[in-house]
Design a binder for these strands. Structure first.
Lengths: 215, 215
DNA sequence: ATTGAAGCAGACAGATCTGTCTGCTAGGTT
DNA sequence: AACCTAGCAGACAGATCTGTCTGCTTCAAT
């Protein structure tokens, strides 16, 4: 049901009133059940239907939460949207890291291995493209939601640039940019044509580009 | 102001009650002024703010048209959305063709020249990504709006495949897929990071991929 | 001169959406 | 025992959105 597998690296909301568990002491699970239910429901509905298409009332109904409880945790809908994007960021970044590591220790192999995460994502049932690109399409530049999207893409680009650098690319920035372009293209068009060969083509292209950049 | 330049190849709405001018005879301009104003306004607002963010009332106000006139031309908002996508399809297809032709007669050069259209688009003031990807993010699979997006992407892929075939690629489908992935990636992420080098990186990658595919 | 098509102006209905507010219940801490 | 926090239930207000309908004007063709 989840579009991006099983939350391997989901990190919490953008934590204004919360702190990460220091060691022991306050061991009581401070992540309330209601908040998590809201977040889970929002994740599912926002991704499947789009952000503007999902009203607060629907999230409240499907998460079985009172309206006052909802607005206590998220004073405005946009706060929930940002928390949703934080969740997706954690999941997707985790999947990218996992796919890279699974490709072996060599950075050059990891650059190509990234694209296995793309294949997995596109194969997911209910796959509907990149949550960030979709969110950006529904938000205006300068808003917190749009900024969150930009920050995510910048973080991924930075990380890939580091990988390209360790791989010994002559121009890590350009290689990383090319690979993220391919990745974003695969994420975006994976929702439009159900062509199962698209991720494979992306990976093959990535291989060629990495090989050319290291030659 | 227009995000995609000056409507070089805009073709008309999906014409249910209209017929294309057969020869002479009914030479009276059947494309009323009101319809065109609605379409122009919708083009501007839908692209800039997103489809769901723009209400019918706003389009009516900004196009200076009566509400009854609006609903006479477009019985439902979605009809206008589809007409808007038709307009974008005409413009963008025209720009792709123009960029390809400008690159010279050789199909291999044209495959790379495509990416000049990407550069131009991203440089446009108010560029906000691919109108089709954005529309797909706001619509559900199976709806006319979503279908229109899928059809557009399929048409572009077909056309690029033909180009790749004429260029002599061993596997035109795979090359075309790779290039459209790059193109879509550039279109999508061009709205997120204002990195002016992204289109150049896309073009350089395209060059490498085309060269590799023809080797 | 009359008719008809196209357009303008705006009221109206019904649905939906965000956000506020009041009351109530349950569990844990002091 | 008193209290506080988290949560549930749902009414309510105000805005907005889609779509319908009535009435008036203008212009061109018959």
């Amino acid at each position: 049901m989840d579009p991006l597998a099983e939350h391997p690296a989901a990190h919490a909301g953008r934590g204004a009133p919360e702190v990460s568990p220091p060691a022991a002491a306050v061991a009581t699970p401070r992540t309330g059940s209601a908040r998590q239910r809201i977040l889970d429901t929002a994740f599912r509905l926002f991704y499947a239907k789009g952000i503007r298409a999902v009203g607060v009332d629907l999230i409240i109904a499907e998460s079985g939460v009172a309206k006052a409880t909802f607005y206590k945790h998220f004073p405005a809908k946009d706060d929930l949207v940002v928390a949703y994007l934080d969740t997706v960021d954690g999941i997707w970044s985790g999947q990218l890291h996992d796919a890279a590591e699974a490709a072996g220790p060599a950075p050059a192999d990891q650059l190509v291995g990234l694209f296995d995460a793309l294949s997995s994502a596109c194969r997911q049932d209910g796959y509907r493209g990149c949550a960030f690109i979709n969110a950006a399409a529904e938000s205006q530049p300068g808003t917190p939601v749009h900024d969150r999207t930009v920050a995510h893409k910048a973080a991924v680009l930075d990380w890939v640039t580091g990988l390209a650098s360790r791989a010994g690319a002559a121009n890590p920035q350009v290689l990383a940019r090319s690979l993220t372009l391919l990745l974003d293209g695969g994420l975006a068009s994976g929702a439009l044509d159900a062509d199962p060969d698209a991720p494979a083509a992306a990976k093959a292209s990535a291989e060629a580009l990495v090989a050319a950049a290291l030659a």
